[in-house]
Amino acid sequence: MNALFFKITLALYFLGTLAFLAYLLAGKKETFSRFSLVTTGIGFAFHTITLIMRMFESGYVSLTHLSDAMDFFAWSLVMVFLLVELRFHIHVLGSFVLPLALISLLSGAVLPAEIRSPDTVLHRAWVYVHTAMALLGAVAFAIAFLVGVMYLIQERLLKSKQFNNLYNKLPSLDILDDLNYKAVILGFGLLTMGIIIGAWGAGNVSGWYWDPREIFSLAIWLFYLIVLHGRITVGWRAKKAAYLAIIGFIGVIVSFVGVDLIWKGQHSFL
């Protein structure tokens, strides 16, 4: 049942992605706009049901598995998009969010999906909170990344004086830069809490030791700290901030997936 729901979710996100891309490229402002949103909304509902059913099936919330983590990441990403859409009506953000959500959901599905019972260390409340914080932080950084990409596109269009459909649909530079800033602050806050909870919990269990994921997470944390500091003090905003958000998110992906596949440490997803 939940495999079927998962497939429906995938299909709906796929349709949503197509509709959002069509919206991006179509000439008329309103074509595909409602369809893409409705498809995504229904897809999100199915996705939520899938996650809840999976939780009941296994008897616990599964976040520590890489495929589950990707699943949760995609779910949060779509949720954040829907919230931003409701609040700020930046419909075109969906054209960037949906493909990323679909990719992460698909790559999660490609990984072995059977539910294994995690070892006792990982079956504790702090682990969930720690993982969820880190994943939500990654979602915020993903938004900053996507908004950064949108900024660079719009900036290029404005500079080269090309006033095409894309130019009309993308929001103003100011809005994009502001969203970037807010997303980075939010992501930084979540990551900070994730790291603190992780360090505290690990201190109780096995002690802090320098495994690749910890090193990467700290490096990312430091990077975003510098990004925020740079914005406030020396004006790393606008174009520079967009580039930094893109670089930062590449780091997040490496830490998120790369570490797991290259180094199989205790800290990796199972």
Binding site: Q154, L158, Y167, P171, S172, L173, D174, I175, D178
Partner: peptide, 9 residues
């Protein structure tokens, strides 16, 4: 209109 695309409001 251009100013609005750059500065929003």
């Amino acid at each position: 209109e251009l100013a609005k695309k750059i500065f929003g409001r």
